[in-house]
Design a protein around this nucleic acid. Structure first.
Lengths: 213, 213, 213, 213
DNA sequence: AATGAATGAGGGTTCATTCAT
DNA sequence: TATGAATGAACCCTCATTCAT
């Protein structure tokens, strides 16, 4: 691999750029092989650097993992904000939000989501992330309830509906390849469409213009 | 924890019973914390035994993981067989098969599925499991196609539909607790209903008798 | 292998018989693979028994090793006694003694000598054995000196002569096989003849009647 | 002990120097305590380093052992080459070769020989080393035969003669101390002289100028 | 800014030893 | 008397982390 995966555009903000590159690459590998199954040597090698070099940008593996989650959570929140701002019904808000979430995650980390291994984080960091994840889930639940209320979502157990959707989204990690025929955009929309159709009040046909691969 | 989690009913078949108990417990922990995030000490402790004791029943951690996957795959195949035998349309076959799969997995391993960390298995074992997983996925795809053909499933991208369903199912690992209010049966049916509704040809209301928690 | 290598002739002295069988077998394996390279499972397996069974006859691996050395040292002393009693010159005493030593060792342990790994024994046991080994070597030195004095041995550095002989004898472990064409008797005599010829005062031709294999 | 036993003369070749130091030290300890009786901690401690540090220079304990044997075999071959080139009779060739072998081994590893515990190496490595050891012994046998043919060696069983000599040489491990009064040179010559005198055709007195300790 | 070298902690595995049967 | 089961210590090896250069 080329050094730093060619992520060195300008100057002193290089530091931040490189940090982001590390996080992005780490997220990708953590996602696939598991946090504990990934050594910092692995991460470093993919960036064309030495393990020791990483420590200039990240204080520890734990912190690196935490940063990955933070990044993911930032993206999630921002996506939910968008969804709530732009959607009209509960269903629409969910669709817009989650699609954006997936797209952004794939752009940022090359991977649509970070799967959380229990115990991988600890102490305050674990609490922080769990807190934010819970917030995220709470927002989702509320949107489902909103959808039920406004008639866009069928009468359904909220928790099940939410986790079904989240599962579909998260699972993309296991099969999506950025080198494949489909772009982030395509996959995101296709998955969200089917997954939300599961609790859509008046589901019709499935559109899939771009997916005629 | 009590010794062997009280899994010692009779006598010489104790060996096999204990082996199964180990596999079951390992699967559960591997699933939550990741294979590499789980030490054999962890597994042993949950069984109220020493790490060394495990080695009377399992030749290595690798083999233990392999055994977990084998067990899972056996269950998966058997469930698919059932689905194909008992269902009438493609959709029905999928529903019956996947629901059974979830129930059996929860019974056997306390966990609805095993998530595969890349690189966790290696060599022939990795090939074996991938092979069987591919077989499993191929069968699912065919059922989706069958469903489209017989009109029970809407026109949809087969791969996306399948992975959406699988994601919903697999994700249950992350939130299901056997100690909670819902039994395996309830969760399995609820998840499958919503997840398959995503590509059901004529989706109606959602039934959820048992889920009025 | 048959149970206890068929070493169960009479009755309550069986205990001692079995103990000897264990020592014998252990000595053999220790000799070849090294003490630390040999597990009690290895020893037990060769006797057709379980590891745990050994503990009825031997209190620990350390003690087993010690017993091996004791046995060897008993044989060595007895052989030296014989040599000193029967030989006329220093050279003759050495020849008789060492040849007997080799024969008896092979009979008793199936192996002509025990090679001592440093640190394998410890504490008092180590001291004991070292003491006896030193006694043995001291006796050998005195016989060499006696041989020089009585003219049967050439003027030679005593230590070197002794260790050369001992080396030749001990090395037999590495190549002698009781299943081969030569008996213990043959090998013992042939080796001793050549090895002592190295410091014999008036060495002549080499006799090797039995070795025309 | 001082770091790396003061074996760090220059710079980038330090890596090779250190590797050699490890091999040398390992050979020494393996030789005395047996491979299985020696932990890498032992080896590391003698070099004033941590066990983990060794892994920068040697991939595994097995490979370390293999490297020891390789080194020894290289020295053996080179010594035999010398003996065959410089000696005139079979006997002379053996004397020159073996004396050189002992000297070089003591210089390189501080120990005149490596004793092979059965099963210590495995697979291809075991085959390799056995092969080379057999080659070595074959060469020795041929020299003995040559000596018999050219009249420098008495009529003798070739195998016994060879193993007697090898035993004398190998045994030096057990009693030679580099810190003692004799140098490698002295010991080598003294041992070889007496050991080969065992099958010399016309053995005379024993010279031992330097050994009047 | 990055590297090579070194360390200490931890995990997988073996094994001597104990004990209930 | 012998066995199977279990344990704790020890060992090999990996890896996150630090430091001198």
């Amino acid at each position: 691999m080329s050094r730093w995966a060619n992520a060195l555009p300008n100057r002193e903000e290089q530091l931040e750029t490189k940090r982001k590159a590390i996080i992005r690459e780490a997220a990708r590998v953590f996602s696939r092989r598991g946090v504990h199954g990934t050594s910092l040597d692995d991460v470093a090698e993919r960036l064309g650097v030495t393990k020791a070099a990483l420590y200039r940008y990240v204080p520890s593996k734990q912190d690196l993992l935490y940063a990955c989650h933070e990044e993911a959570m930032d993206i999630a929140r921002e996506a939910m904000d968008r969804g709530e701002a732009e959607g009209r019904t509960g269903l629409e808000k969910i669709r817009i939000g989650m699609a954006r979430y997936m797209r952004e995650m794939i752009d940022a980390m090359g991977v649509p989501v970070l799967i959380i291994e229990e115990n991988a984080l600890s102490g305050q960091q674990a609490k922080d992330i769990m807190q934010r994840r819970d917030d995220f889930e709470r927002r989702m639940r509320r949107l489902v309830e909103e959808g039920i209320a406004d008639g866009s979502i069928v009468q359904v157990n909220v928790k099940i509906a939410m986790f079904t959707l989240l599962g579909a989204v998260h699972w993309v990690t296991k099969w999506y390849s950025p080198d494949g025929a489909w772009g982030a955009e395509d996959v995101a929309e296709a998955v969200i469409e089917i997954a939300t159709r599961g609790f859509e009040a008046r589901p019709g046909k499935v559109l899939q213009a771009r997916l005629n691969k």
